[in-house]
């Protein structure tokens, strides 16, 4: 079968829910961050697929996914800074051990 819009939407929906599954099951902050990256990537794929198949005369989806990539990079950097700080104070990056918001 010739791949079209629905195939890409299937891949991106599957990837989104793989990320959601990882976010539910993982308890280590770095692996939770990886799940978030998968979710953001599936959103990018969705934007690009809609742009390619439904509005090929515009570039809006491309710009949206570029901004999503920029924000994901900023988010990953801040999250890793927080994780390193948490590791220094708790010697662990498990979410179950990080219950206090401030100490």
């Amino acid at each position: 079968m010739e791949p079209g819009l629905y195939h890409l939407l299937f891949i991106s929906a599957a990837l989104f829910f793989i990320g959601v599954f990882g976010f539910f099951t993982r308890r280590n902050l770095i692996t939770m961050l990886m799940s978030i990256e998968l979710v953001l990537n599936s959103v990018n794929l969705n934007f690009i697929a809609f742009n390619k198949y439904l509005w090929p005369h515009r570039l809006d989806g491309l710009f949206f996914s570029m901004f999503v990539i920029a924000i994901a990079a900023a988010e990953a950097a801040v999250a890793i800074a927080i994780i390193l700080n948490l590791y220094r104070s708790h010697q662990s990056i498990d979410v179950e051990n990080a219950e206090a918001m401030k100490f």
């Binding site: 990537n41 990539i69 994780i83």
Partner: peptide, 17 residues
């Protein structure tokens, strides 16, 4: 950005923690 940046950042933070 992703393959060259974020993944390397994640791998380094794994090494550190």
């Amino acid at each position: 950005v992703y393959v060259g940046g974020i993944t390397v950042l994640i791998i380094f933070s794994i090494f550190l923690t």
